[in-house]
Structures are given as C-alpha cells and as structure tokens.
C-alpha cells in the first residue's frame, strides 16, 4: 500500500475492503503521513478574515437611543387608560342617582317576580360570569358600626324594607359592584383581567375617600345612602351595599 508524503497536498490512500474497524488504523496513518497542517490553518485564516469583514460591515448599523426617546418610541400609539376618579364622579354617580330604586322595592320584586325577571327589569348583569347589580337607595338608622374586621360594616335598620342594609365602609371593600354595575364598562375595553380588576380597585378606593369625607358616624344617626348591591341569587341574608353617596337625614 503506497503512502506518499507530500508537503503541499494531502494524499489519502483508500484501502479496499470497506470500512471495518480493523482498517481504520491504516486509514488514519495514511491521512496523517500525508497531512499538511498549513493547509488547515490557511483555510481557517481566510475563513476568519471573511467573518471579520462581514462582521464589521454589519456592525456599522446599530442605533443608540436615550431612555426618554425610547419611552416615546415605545408608547407612541397607546390609548390613554380610563381614569377611575373622573369616571366615578362624572359618569357613574350621576347615572346611578338617576337609576336607583328603593331597596324595599327591589327586594319585594325579587320575592314576587323571581330573581331573573327582577334582574332584567331593575338590575345590570353583564353576562353569566357576573352577578346582578342593583343600584338602590335607602335611608335608615345606624344600628351598629363594626370595625373589628377590615371589611368595615355599618348596619342600617328601620329602612322600611324589612331587611337590614349593611354599608361597606372600608378600608377593605370586597367585590366589584361599582364596575359591574355601570353598563359602559366592559371587559373587552381592558387589555387583560388584571387591568380590569385594577380598575375596580381604583373605583373602590374612591369610595373610601367618599366615606372618609362624610365624617364620623355614631349609632343612632339617621343617614341615607345610594349604592350598588351585587348579588348572585337575591336571597342573601344581609344586603351589602357599596356606597357612592351618603347624606345625613335631619332628625325628627
């Protein structure tokens, strides 16, 4: 088996008989004897040079922006988000005040006509995923002020409805009654459930300021309230209301 060795070429002598493992050894010797390392590094060098030139050409095109410019570029075209505070005072409260019903009226309607019919007539329900929200108004005497839990409750009795009405006074206001009770707020207007929920939180936080501004109350005071009552069944033992408007009623 002739194995020639040259300095500028690789001569590989192919051995006959296939590629069984036995022959690999001879194969390799043939390769090595004839191999020229310069050839490899020459290829490597030209390759490297090619990469370097193309890299330099490509890299001449990057952009540097300052952080202010970046913010401007990224947010150009984002619609402004709805402001909870202005929506509450400008739209929701006026609308609610004009669409309220007396709580007694609603409760007796539920008893007589059934929940679903009453909801269709008097309430707002955005879909199967939402409870039915009634905007109610009532006035009564403060029976109890419960601040033991962070879900503060002011219980009104003598409301003329036959039921006790509980005003949710914070600092934690559960539920999404205000958002769900106003027909013009739909989930589709928000980018995701989180944003939708945050909006409800913003509305509820406004309510806390309304309550704070109302001032101190003591049992025995007579007040009137307009608020949202959200219910899945209409059969709740207590009527929990998220207030949007509170007024003191003059004593007898």
């Amino acid at each position: 088996m002739p194995i020639t060795s040259t300095t500028s070429n690789i001569r590989v002598t192919k051995l006959s008989g296939g590629s069984g493992g036995f022959h690999h050894f001879h194969y390799i010797i043939g390769v090595i004897r004839g191999a020229d390392m310069n050839n490899t590094s020459c290829i490597a060098r030209t390759f490297g040079l090619a990469i370097l030139t193309s890299t330099t050409l490509i890299l001449s095109g990057f952009t540097i922006v300052s952080s202010e410019e970046l913010i401007e570029i990224k947010t150009g075209g984002t619609p402004p988000s709805i402001d909870a505070s202005s929506l509450l005072y400008d739209d929701i409260i006026p609308w609610a005040s004009s669409s309220t019903r007396n709580v007694g009226e609603v409760l007796s309607a539920i008893e007589n006509q059934g929940f679903e019919t009453t909801c269709e007539e008097y309430g707002i329900q955005k879909g199967q995923a939402f409870p039915c929200t009634f905007w109610i108004q009532t006035s009564g005497v403060i029976d109890n002020i419960d601040t033991s839990s962070r879900v503060g409750k002011i219980t009104l009795s003598d409301t003329g409805s036959g039921s006790e009405v509980v005003i949710l006074s914070g600092p934690v206001i559960p539920g999404t009654a205000l958002r769900d009770g106003y027909p013009d707020i739909v989930y589709n207007d928000f980018s995701n459930q989180d944003a939708f929920a945050s909006f409800s939180d913003d509305l509820n936080n406004e309510v806390i300021s309304i309550i704070e501004n109302f001032g101190e109350v003591t049992p025995g005071d007579r007040i009137s309230v307009v608020g949202a009552y959200a219910t899945w069944t209409g059969m709740d033992s207590t009527i929990q209301v998220v207030p949007v408007s509170l007024e003191r009623v003059g004593g007898e």
Partner: peptide, 15 residues
Amino acid sequence: GISIGDYTIFFNVPE
C-alpha cells in the same frame, strides 16, 4: 436592547 447608563443600544436585525 442593551442599556448603558441613560442610553440603550439597539442592534439591527443582521447584527
């Protein structure tokens, strides 16, 4: 992009 201090570098697509 790559932020260095107050500036950000954005490379073009081939880069």
